[in-house]
């Protein structure tokens, strides 16, 4: 059942000096391409178009862009209405306001009706940084995961973001795409395919499997390298699709490594860790552990300070992995 081959860069150059690129700009640029190709693309934002980069679409297609003001609930409802006339609608704001402020509109107006709305939210996770708890979405994945039929994707870098945005535009119905504020290390090249629901294997290994998504991928690549130096062989998956989670990859991890560590910039309650644990207990329980945000609110700080504080560092991932091997 093991899946053949690996993808993505795990070489020294990428580990030591990664090229970084903005996933938000990748989103905005892809929207412009889609706008050129398709008349039916409409984009909405809630007074954050420079941050989400939907401003690029707004400049090019002012007639198909609507700035809804600071009114997220109204934006989601309006997105739904436009979608129900047969259009493909992208609605963007920060992750916390998209999923929190407008949760009921997403659940009742959009998801229940299977409206063709793509919620692409930026500023996911603790890496949102100095703005603090009010702006750090640490529970957005949980909030979206619990909505029936909602599909959730969290791309790790700019090349993957471009593919994900194109993918969600090509498939009917609601999606939640989580992007982050900082520039992300580039792991994939333009030819790495995005397959919805299918995690990307970056490393082959025997001793344990690490699952991660988004900004943490590069740190996990680094951690896997540190573990390899100590003779520990790590299988590493980029679980970009969080819902539906890749059960084949989970089976492979259970059968071939028997131990699973999940690393994510999100609350440990309801995110990828929960998604995988829910499957593991129903299949064949194996020792698991997690490095994520504990049951606490975020706080202000620089990205590095916050990652360090929450243990989201290659060094800590290595240590957690070694402890997991002792169980």
């Amino acid at each position: 059942m093991a899946r053949e081959g690996t993808a993505g860069r795990t070489d020294r150059a990428c580990i030591e000096r990664p090229r970084v690129e903005s996933v938000r700009t990748a989103y905005g640029e892809t929207l412009v391409e889609l706008g050129e190709e398709r008349e039916d693309i409409v984009v909405l934002d809630a007074d954050l178009s420079a941050s989400t980069q939907t401003c690029l679409f707004a400049e090019r297609f002012p007639d198909r862009f609507f700035n809804m003001g600071i009114s997220e609930a109204d934006m989601m409802g309006t997105a739904c209405g436009i979608a129900l006339t047969g259009k493909t609608v992208f609605a963007s704001t920060f992750a916390i306001f998209a999923t929190g402020r407008a949760w009921d509109q997403i659940r009742n107006s959009i998801a229940y009706a299977r409206a063709n709305v793509k919620i692409v939210a930026t500023h996911g996770g603790i890496v949102t940084g100095p703005d603090g708890a009010s702006h750090q979405a640490l529970e957005d994945i949980s909030l979206m995961r619990v909505i029936p039929g909602m599909r959730i994707i969290c791309p790790a870098d700019a090349p993957m973001t471009r593919k994900v945005v194109r993918y969600v535009a090509s498939v009917d119905g609601p999606f939640y795409v989580r992007l982050i504020r900082p520039k992300a290390p580039v792991i994939y090249d333009d030819d790495t395919p995005f397959e919805f629901g299918r995690a990307i294997k970056l490393r082959e290994g025997r001793d344990l499997t690490i699952f991660t998504h988004g900004f943490m991928l590069w740190r996990c690549i680094k951690a896997a390298e540190l573990l390899e130096e100590e003779g520990i062989s790590v299988k590493l998956f980029d679980s970009h699709t969080i819902k539906p989670v890749d059960t084949e990859a989970i089976d492979e991890a259970i059968e071939e490594t028997g131990r699973i560590l999940v690393v994510e910039d999100h609350s440990r309650i309801g995110g990828l860790f929960s998604a995988i644990a829910e499957e593991v207990v129903r299949r064949k329980p194996v020792p698991m552990d997690v490095i994520a945000i504990d049951d606490v609110f975020g706080e202000s700080g620089s990205i590095d300070e916050l990652l360090e504080f929450h243990g989201l560092t290659p060094e800590n991932i290595k240590n957690k992995a070694k402890k997991l091997l002792e169980r």
């Binding site: 100095p130 703005d131 603090g132 708890a133 009010s134 702006h135 706080e299 202000s300 700080g301 300070e305």
Partner: peptide, 14 residues
């Protein structure tokens, strides 16, 4: 110390 990790003064009022 505004907006620094562990600070009394968070980016937004708490």
């Amino acid at each position: 110390k505004l907006r620094k990790r562990g600070a009394m003064l968070q980016g937004h009022p708490s």
